[in-house]
Design a protein around this nucleic acid. Structure first.
Lengths: 229, 229
DNA sequence: ATAAGTCTAATGGTTCAACCATTCGAACCG
DNA sequence: CGGTTCGAATGGTTGAACCATTAGACTTAT
């Protein structure tokens, strides 16, 4: 019925005003807010209070501060990191076990594969093939597992983008970034293992290309199951 | 290979130190940080700088500030709101259409239902039955749709908790909070509609009780499809 | 004696003025 | 023309002061 009363804090009001302006698109990403000494006049507050507001906006990922002449608060496009940061805090704080991350990830990514198979355009397929090639090149040229892993990540991200549903993209990025902290330590980096892994990816792309949703789903599932052993 | 250089900012260092202490459990939720005037001495910084650090921690949801004597920064348990806030910003900023939220939600919740059917204990079932009863009471007593909706939300949340995987719980809360902003305006609140809705919920709980994973999955899917019309 | 009002001190919120640190660009040499 | 120096813009930090809110102790009136 009623909700707790919070004392009005000036900096919060400033945060709200600026955030609204950004989310309404009145200030586009890349544009700069006026310098602190001007903003403080506009809002009729002290610089300290204004700076507290800017800290909050910066933490939210809405602005980024640059130093020096011509520096200032640059409005940022919303990135998946906002989501990833929240997830990261949750995962660390609750000590989420790897198995739970994998369980969740499997649900997300298998459905991503299914939707990608349903919605991929010929251009999308080309993109996927190009990324596969990058991975294969990395293997053939013994470019190190980092190069291969980068291609792998790119493939997963591209699949999520192909779904056309940004929610998948953002959540997947968040989970991925956090799950990789585990994998980076334990993953096998031997070439034979990586080539098996590559075979999985190729099977997924093949299924997506053929538009076979169930096959794409199954291929992704098999792939993730192999990682979870 | 290389990563951009960022100037060291003192408040960031303070944020890191305090956040670490909290995440390591050295300061438990409910405990208070020392007053600002003491903290500023500990870190050997000015109060303004310290306060910028506290603003960041507050924005992250790690602390909450209380006023007056005995007030101060109280360490908070990590709540689903951290995730929900990030999602909310993403959804608003990217103008995610309702259909995409529904698509994603369906994937999450159908799998929650499946896992709940797999893992529910007899005590869990009792809980679910009790919540169903709350919903039915709300209908019978014409207590208003708010009471019914509250029971509905509780049921969904409980199912996600039954999975035993906190990731589901947090993500689902985040999506739920944001999707409800749409529904609140358009949902039918007529009793006949709500009774149909109740039937769906009952079918889900029945399936969960019987441990029939596929049926629970299907029941949840049917339920969400009805909402998405 | 108890209930109501009042005072006090702790603590966060805000302000102001000053100075430091970084960066860009212009002016100035060599 | 290329490198150097300098100055100004701008964020980062500091210190001291005062305001606002709150809990608890104290006082007072009935």
């Amino acid at each position: 019925m009623f909700t707790a009363v919070k004392p009005n804090r000036i900096f919060q009001d400033i945060v709200d005003q600026i955030q609204d302006a950004i989310l309404r698109g009145q200030i586009a990403p890349g544009e700069k807010l006026p310098p602190e000494r001007e903003l403080k006049e506009m809002f009729s507050v002290s610089r300290g209070t204004l700076r507290e507001a800017l800290r909050v906006l910066e933490q939210k990922g809405l602005i980024e501060i640059q130093l020096g002449v011509g520096g200032g608060a640059v409005v940022q496009a919303v990135t998946p990191e906002i989501v990833a940061d929240g997830l990261s805090l949750m995962i660390r704080s609750l000590d989420i076990p790897l198995a739970h991350l994998q369980e969740f990830r499997t649900v997300i990514e298998t459905n991503i594969a299914r939707l990608a198979a349903k919605r991929a355009t010929p251009e999308n397929i080309e993109e996927l093939r190009a990324i596969l090639q990058e991975g294969m090149d990395a293997l053939d040229q013994h470019a190190g597992w980092e190069a291969y892993v980068a291609a792998d990540a790119k493939l997963h991200m591209t699949l999520s983008r192909i779904t056309g549903n940004a929610v998948y993209e953002y959540i997947q990025t968040g989970i991925h970034e956090n799950i990789n902290r585990y994998y980076a330590e334990f993953l096998e980096h031997e070439e034979s293992v990586l080539r098996e892994h590559y075979g999985d990816l190729k099977a997924i792309v093949d299924a997506v290309e053929s538009g076979n949703e169930d096959e794409a789903y199954a291929a992704m599932q098999a792939h993730l199951r192999r990682l979870g052993d």
